[in-house]
């Protein structure tokens, strides 16, 4: 049953651009895929208690590296993605090593990463001769090209972003099946106990942090290529960093589909209100979103999807047990 539902859903998503939907709907879907990709990457570490409030740093590094290399040296964004991802990974390595070595955890880790995101944003503004400062810069237009990752037709980006999202979800599964997941879960529950049992805390935490940073950087490149405009306030700093964390938390960072569901809800809500009620009310929708978030953290700490999943699972297992008590799962 479940597998069939999954295949139907995947078919619908793949077929979506083929039935002649408006470019606007494709645009919204593409935004959802890109940010869900980043939020999923964020949850790689978030779900093990490494809550980063500075993923804007990695997005910014990735997007600006690829964007500047493309504009000044005409380097393909595919290569720029790798370079930016590696740079973000190195940044994660340095900061992560320092944090884990000195035992920075929990809210201290969150505050430290918050500062990191803001530093990257300020550096981007400070080097205004190269980055355009607060005004940002636009990418050179080259028409449609696979090599330069720019397309006139939105459907291309739709499929590219979708594949990246699926890859990120697949990577989540890989982490789940690896030895790393067991180690990280033990660390997340009780770090000192895990250490005494011989779990190499720093190594495992670093690995997942670097993966998460790499994904965020690639997401940054995708977003920049899609909108062909880079700005330090939308790609780094406190705002975007908090947004990523909130999307994942709203959906539920402990479940595979949580970050995707959270991103979908937020993006759809925002776009719906913006289109139907105008720019003035975007502020109101943001207020509603903030209030919803605070309420959710108070009443549903596992997120919307996480809580739903748990409820459904409980109902399903309860029902099957009451109907045929002999059956085992």
């Amino acid at each position: 049953m479940k597998a069939v539902a999954k295949i139907i859903l995947l078919g619908l998503v793949i077929g979506f651009p083929l039935v002649g939907v408006s470019p606007y709907l494709l645009h919204v879907a593409t935004l959802i895929f890109i940010w869900a990709f980043i939020a999923t990457g964020w949850s790689y570490m978030g779900r093990f208690g490494l809550v980063s409030l500075g993923h804007g740093a990695f997005i910014g590094i990735g997007a600006y590296t690829a964007g500047l290399l493309f504009n000044h040296f005409s380097l393909s964004p595919w290569a720029g993605m790798i370079v930016g991802g590696i740079l973000a990974g190195v940044m994660a390595l340095i900061i992560g090593w320092a944090c884990f070595r000195f035992g920075v955890m929990g809210d201290y880790f969150a505050l430290l990463t918050l500062a990191l995101g803001e530093i990257v944003s300020l550096v981007l503004v400070a080097f205004r001769d190269y980055t355009g400062g607060s005004l940002g810069f636009t990418l050179k237009r080259v028409g449609s090209s696979w090599f330069y990752l720019q397309f006139e037709d939105k459907a291309y980006f739709y499929y590219i972003a979708l594949s990246f999202l699926l890859a990120a979800l697949f990577l989540w599964r890989c982490i789940d099946r690896s030895r790393m997941q067991k180690a990280l879960r033990a660390i997340g529950e009780d770090e000192i106990a895990a250490a005494t049992l011989g779990v190499r805390i720093v190594k495992y935490k670093l690995r997942v942090t670097i993966m998460s940073a790499f994904v965020a950087a690639i997401g940054g490149v995708l977003y920049a290529q899609y909108v062909t405009y880079l700005n330090p306030h939308t790609l780094a700093g406190v705002g975007p960093s908090l947004d990523i964390a909130f999307k994942a938390i709203l959906g539920g960072m402990y479940s595979l589909w949580g970050p995707t569901v959270g991103t979908t809800i937020i993006v759809v809500l925002e776009e719906y209100i913006r289109v139907n009620y105008g720019a003035k009310y975007v502020g109101i929708s943001q207020i509603a979103y903030g209030v919803a978030l605070v309420l959710l953290i108070i009443f549903m700490p596992k997120g919307i999807f996480g809580t739903m999943e748990e409820k459904i699972r409980r109902v399903l297992s309860g029902r099957s047990r009451s109907r045929d008590p002999g059956q085992k799962h």
Partner: peptide, 23 residues
């Protein structure tokens, strides 16, 4: 609640307050 959840909820207030002022 957990320390981290307190932090995140209060961070959510940033969004509320800034947009309140904006509106």
């Amino acid at each position: 609640a957990e320390r981290l959840n307190q932090l995140l909820a209060l961070a959510g207030l940033i969004v509320v307050f800034e947009n309140l002022a904006h509106v």
